[in-house]
């Protein structure tokens, strides 16, 4: 009797598991067909000269050698890294500064939060990119504004010396999501610590660097890593505002990958570029985690 009950229970359990996987199957098919399979297949393609033709060959490390010898590829790695190294600290600083200001309990705080978050909501879409062109173009809003003071502007987006900074500025302007995460972290800092520091005579700056920053450092690390990943994957802004130009000064890696794959048909080479990008992002993320032990403070890690 006990055995029969066990068997029935096992069958019921098996049926439940089967049903669960049945319902999950749509997701799993999607996961394998549209994520894992292309992911794995791209490794294979990276070692071929696949150009959308059924006739292609294994070419060994040729594509990877080209990644590190082709002038356009080297330029795209260079400009992407420089973009990330400038935009990420600036964006995080702007987000933290705004979060600190919004954490002071000023009147109408909800409105301010919304206003600062709106640029992130409208995001890196095409409309924002076009707006940026209108602001910093030759006849844009910015040049009209500085003309009031008798200054003559230039086309900030068409100039190879300034174009990348214009895209950095766009990235910094969209600090809303990082700001909200910082704001949530700031709310968690115990008030009592500030009160004790004030009794000891600490000023605002000392309180910020000695209390606030250490206590929210895990969140800073989180935002840092997320922003590094995002910065290396920048695409839409460059694709819409500059198309990678002028002089390929904004030919970011993902834009180059897109061009190689879908405009030029160099799918094997584009796969190699993609894997190189993955390794670069992993490298910067790894470095961030490695050095985090020197500046990130976890309350659970007693020192």
């Amino acid at each position: 009797m006990t055995n029969l009950r066990k068997t029935l229970q096992q069958r019921r359990r098996l049926a439940e598991v089967g049903q669960a996987y049945g319902f999950l199957s749509l997701y799993l098919i999607g996961l394998f067909a549209f994520i894992l399979w292309p992911f794995g297949h791209s490794i294979y393609l990276a070692f071929t000269n696949y150009r959308f033709s059924p006739n292609y060959d294994y070419v060994g490390f040729t594509n990877f050698i080209r990644v590190f010898t082709d002038s356009l590829s080297l330029k795209s790695i260079n400009v992407t890294t420089r973009y990330a190294l400038v935009s990420v600290p600036l964006r995080l600083s702007a987000a933290l500064l705004a979060a600190v200001v919004l954490n002071t309990g000023i009147r109408g705080i909800g409105i301010y939060r919304t206003v600062y978050y709106v640029p992130s909501l409208i995001g890196g879409g095409v409309a924002v990119a076009i707006m940026w062109r209108r602001i910093f173009g030759r006849r844009g809003l910015f040049n009209n504004f500085i003309a009031i003071f008798g200054l003559t502007g230039q086309d900030w987006i068409a100039n190879p010396d300034t174009v990348r900074f214009m895209l950095v500025l766009l990235s910094v302007w969209q600090f809303g999501s990082s700001m909200l995460i910082f704001l949530a972290a700031l709310k968690q800092v115990p008030k009592g610590l500030y009160e004790s520091a004030e009794i000891d005579g600490a000023g605002s700056i000392r309180k910020f660097f000695r209390i606030t920053v250490p206590l929210i450092s895990p969140v800073i690390l989180f935002n840092l890593v997320m922003n590094i990943i995002g910065a290396f994957q920048v695409f839409t802004q460059a694709a819409v505002i500059t198309g990678g130009g002028p002089m390929n000064e904004t030919m970011f890696m993902v834009l180059n990958i897109y061009n190689q794959a879908f405009r030029y048909g160099n799918m094997g080479y584009a796969s190699a570029l993609s894997w190189t990008l993955l390794v670069i992002i992993a490298g910067f993320t790894g470095i961030s985690f490695l050095v985090s032990k020197y500046w990130v403070y976890y309350e659970t890690s007693a020192k």
Binding site: R133, G137, R138, Q154, D155, I157, A158, G245, P246, M247
Partner: peptide, 20 residues
């Protein structure tokens, strides 16, 4: 000049439309 050429588009912002 180079900056007008590099940013030229073939639509509403064309240099001929903007009288550049």
């Amino acid at each position: 000049p180079a900056d007008i050429t590099a940013q030229a588009d073939d639509g509403a912002n064309s240099p001929i439309v903007n009288r550049d």
